[in-house]
Amino acid sequence: MTEVLRIEGLHKSFAELEVLKGIDLSVNKGETVVLLGASGSGKSTLLRCVNFMEIPTSGRIHLEGKAIGSARNGRVAYAERELTQLRSRVGMVFQHFNLFPHMTALENVMEGPRTVLKCDSSECRRRGEKYLDKVGLGWKADAYPSQLSGGQQQRIAIARALAMEPEIMLFDEATSALDPELVGEVLETMKELAEEGMTMLIVTHELGFAYTVADKVLFLSEGSILEQGTPAEVLTYPRQDATKNFLRGHNMFRLPEPQID
């Protein structure tokens, strides 16, 4: 198996506050890894360090076997050009979609290939249409974000990231801002991606999704990985108290299997 992403000894501090306290993590090609943890546990920060939206305080990140940044005198220096180039190979989906409101759905999806990859206009359009179709929204190509539901907007944001044909996709609580009835369509899109072999690192609170789709689940607590394993191991047989409490909170009120078809 080829390793797409490797994180070694990652630390991140904001002023006095140490948010990540030494994270080691490896993601193989085609794997779906889900990060769980209470709010403030550092999972979003971890995700944002992978594409250098936040610059790690120390530690090393490798993409496709190549270390990012250059080590000098025990510190790692990052050139802006290298980070910009790296970000074009890592897709990110945000909690609040962040679609460009002055562009149509299609223009949003074409924007990366056009501005960053400098594709010619027919290639841009081909990619735009391909990935809009992939998330099932080809028919909304000319709509502006404000004319779309939250679920549709998030699927377009996914298409926008996919259009860069990234090596790994990061999802930062992609369904947390959605109305409950719209969560399903976005999770469905993410599940399809996982099944097609996309490499994904996902921060979510959707435990059912994690259980069904993830290859590996990590539980973060206070900036460290407290527990990791298969979904069955972590979600059904948690060993650490913090994990147990977290799962207890999530499962406090649960429906029996609804009888619908």
């Binding site: 970000r87 190979r89 945000f94 960053v116 926008r160």
Partner: peptide, 21 residues
């Protein structure tokens, strides 16, 4: 909103591309 800058940045845009586009 800063999310707009971030969305551009995450696609791999430079600061001036984020500004301009």
């Amino acid at each position: 909103h800063k999310g707009q800058w971030e969305a551009g940045k995450a696609l791999g845009m430079s600061y001036w591309q984020q500004m301009r586009r």
